[in-house]
């Protein structure tokens, strides 16, 4: 496939990734989705989880906590609330956060709990990867 996708991953603090890639898998709030070159314009909210970037046969993963994906003809931009390369995630820190999030879940009203449970699921999925 000759076409490539311009992908950039930005968090409020800095730009983590910018370049040409073959495919990006995103954890959307409505379900996971893969973005290939020439994707139709799309704006999707992202839940906590892993972003996988495929380029030249290799893949790179990032841990994101919430944010947005914006697909335009110019390429894909992910605006992540918090983003870290998966290699930099500290399992001990993650365990602590999962426990804290679980404790918070107990005190929440039902409508908030739904979103929070998604967040915990995402954290656990990341934990299984590292």
């Amino acid at each position: 496939m000759a076409d490539t996708l311009t992908f950039s991953l930005v968090s409020p603090e800095r730009e983590l990734f910018s370049g040409q890639v073959d495919q990006v898998d995103l954890p959307g709030t409505e379900g996971d989705l893969g973005v290939l070159p020439n994707h139709s314009p799309l704006m999707a909210a992202i839940r906590t989880g892993a972003i996988t970037v495929y380029s030249n046969g290799s893949e790179e993963k990032f841990f994101v906590e919430g944010g947005f994906a914006d697909v335009t003809p110019a390429g894909l931009t992910v605006l992540a609330e918090v983003a870290t390369p998966l290699a930099d995630v500290d399992p001990a820190d993650l365990t602590a956060r999962i426990e804290k999030a679980r404790a918070e879940l107990e005190m929440m009203s039902d409508e908030k709990a739904m979103a929070h449970r998604l967040h915990i699921d995402g954290l656990e999925a990341i934990f299984n990867m590292v």
């Binding site: 959307g28 709030t29 409505e30 989705l33 139709s40 314009p41 799309l42 704006m43 999707a44 909210a45 947005f68 335009t72 003809p73 110019a74």
Partner: peptide, 17 residues
């Protein structure tokens, strides 16, 4: 951005986003 006449898809809906 210039969308070449294409329409944005929103996931979830615009208000939700």
């Amino acid at each position: 951005p210039d969308l070449n006449g294409a329409i944005y898809t929103y996931e979830p809906d615009e208000a939700g986003i």
